[in-house]
Simulated scan of single mutants.
Amino acid sequence: MILVTAANGNQGKLLNPRLLAVGLALRACVRSDASARVLRAAGVTDVVVGDLADHEVLTRAMRGVEKVYYVGPALHPDERQMGFAAIDAARAAGVRHFVLSSALHAIVTDLVQHEIKRDLEEHLISSGMEFTILQPANYMLRHRLTPAFERGVFVLSWALERYQSMVDVDDVAEVAATVLTDSAPHAGATYELVAPGRYTAYDLANAVAQVTGRDITAERIDPEDFLKAALGTDDPTRFPYQTRLLRAITDHYSSHDFIGNSNVLTWLLGRRPTTFEQFTQREYARFLVGGAA
């Protein structure tokens, strides 16, 4: 039995079908009944609904599980404590292999979420369980292309001239499925998951322009406007932790490049990873069919 947390999120909804396709027993953990209905409709029969901050929910989710794929709750003020509790609960339940979804360069501790993931990596390594740590770069996500496809503007909330490395979530899900399906070769490993290429916002806009055949400009969103939109409020002080985290991202990415190397991901996939240009081609084709990115 494999437990996948955040199972209706960016990674989970791509990972679940891969695990089911090879006949693995899958338990999915989600926070809402709506997410549970989506997963059951997709063929996941064992779904635990609840908040993993609840000890009873966590214990029930881990019961009888051999492997765990743990994706922490984004923007959650208790992310560190919840991750520690999940690792401890897995160990207590006799889980044999714990796979942690971390982040590229978790040692960059002025990024709030990276500091948390660095602490979780340390706790996992010290747990006595077999482990694998995946460290993906910034995700290529469909919704981030929407302004470019609809309005001809590629937007970021940090300095447009800074370079970033990226990775397709589909490639991350493929690696996760490989690690969970055949754990032994990957036990004790920490893998950086990075696609080829280093891009400024101008490079990304140009790549979208090449795919769509239209002029695309790069535009920086005012950081405070981005913060209000991300949190869905005109008063970010209502969410002090989330505000601190998002401001740290904008500040760090405006002062430093965030880059990695694609060699490890290439080896794990056995092919060249998906590039941003290929990702954009795929998502633009979907946009033309569906009318939305």
Rank of each mutant, 00 (worst) to 15 (best):
I2G: 08
I2Y: 04
A7L: 01
G9V: 00
L20R: 03
V22W: 06
G23H: 04
A25H: 10
L26T: 01
R40F: 01
R40I: 00
G43N: 00
T45H: 14
D51N: 15
L58C: 03
T59S: 14
M62C: 14
R63C: 03
E66A: 13
V68K: 11
V68G: 05
Y69V: 00
Y70H: 15
V71R: 00
P73W: 02
A74E: 06
H97F: 07
F98A: 12
V99K: 05
S101A: 15
S102F: 04
A106N: 13
I107P: 06
E115T: 07
K117R: 14
S127P: 11
G128S: 04
L134F: 01
A137E: 10
N138V: 04
L141K: 02
L145F: 08
G152K: 09
G152H: 13
F154Q: 04
V155L: 06
R162K: 15
Q164F: 10
V167Y: 03
D168K: 02
D168T: 05
V175I: 01
A176V: 08
T178S: 14
H186K: 09
A187N: 01
A187D: 08
D203H: 12
D203F: 07
A205C: 08
A207I: 15
Q210V: 11
V211G: 12
G213F: 13
R214V: 10
E219M: 06
R220E: 02
I221P: 00
P240G: 10
T243P: 08
R244Q: 14
D251A: 15
S254H: 10
H256E: 03
N261R: 14
T274E: 08
F279S: 12
Q281K: 15
E283R: 09
G290Q: 14
A292M: 08
A293F: 13
